[in-house]
Amino acid sequence: MTAAPLDPLSKRRLKAWIRLLSVTRQTESRLRERLRVEHGTTLPRFDVMAALWRFHDGLTMSELSRALLVSNGNATVIVDRLEREGLVRRTPMESDRRTVQVKLTAQGKQMFDSMAMDHESEVNRLLGNLDAQDLEQLRAILLKANAQET
């Protein structure tokens, strides 16, 4: 059986993917370090708090896990720690006491607001070489790359 000839852009697309992955990993590594040094926290904790901040009414543990693309177990470990620190509160749902809703506490909101401002500032610094036109082109390219065939 003979393999079909590769698309002539195949190697260039592979190199683009490797570059994209490299930039993502480097940026994420710097953001992780910044959160650790400046805020004494981790990126997964920041992500949980960000998801809860976006949903002011709270999320069930299942909704939180889906939003973060992690298992319920992984989300539970992080929420347990945040709850012990008084940053989130778990409340059983009145409609189904087996289902627990998680919300940021006032202290958690205040802490997240501080971290989010610093996070945005650091992302701005890390991507500071990109001007408005670059950002628009990048957005358009990523949207195009993410388009799924139906």
Rank of each mutant, 00 (worst) to 15 (best):
N146I: 11
R139S: 08
R12T: 13
E33F: 11
G58D: 01
E149P: 11
E83H: 08
Q101F: 03
D57R: 12
A106R: 11
L82F: 04
L104D: 00
E33V: 12
T76P: 03
M1P: 11
V100Q: 12
D47T: 14
L21R: 09
K15R: 10
I141D: 04
G40Q: 01
N124Y: 05
L104H: 04
S71N: 06
V79S: 05
S121P: 12
A116S: 00
S62Y: 06
R13S: 07
V48W: 02
N74M: 12
R81N: 05
D134A: 13
R13P: 05
T24F: 07
Q101W: 03
T42S: 02
E136M: 14
V100N: 06
L138P: 15
E63A: 02
L6H: 14
T42C: 00
N72P: 06
R81W: 01
L9P: 15
G86N: 05
E120Q: 10
V100Y: 04
D131K: 12
S71H: 08
L130T: 07
A106W: 03
I18M: 07
L142S: 13
D118R: 04
S62T: 12
T99E: 06
D7F: 06
R34H: 13
V23R: 04
R125S: 01
T105F: 00
E149C: 11
D80G: 04
R25V: 06
L69W: 06
H39N: 09
D57I: 11
L6M: 13
R36I: 05
T150P: 10
A132Q: 04
R25W: 03
Q101N: 06
T24D: 04
D57F: 11
L126V: 08
A51P: 10
K11V: 14
T27N: 00
L82Y: 02
A132I: 02
R66T: 13
T99R: 10
L21N: 08
M117T: 09
E38K: 11
R32T: 09
L52C: 05
L9G: 15
T91S: 15
A147S: 14
L31Y: 01
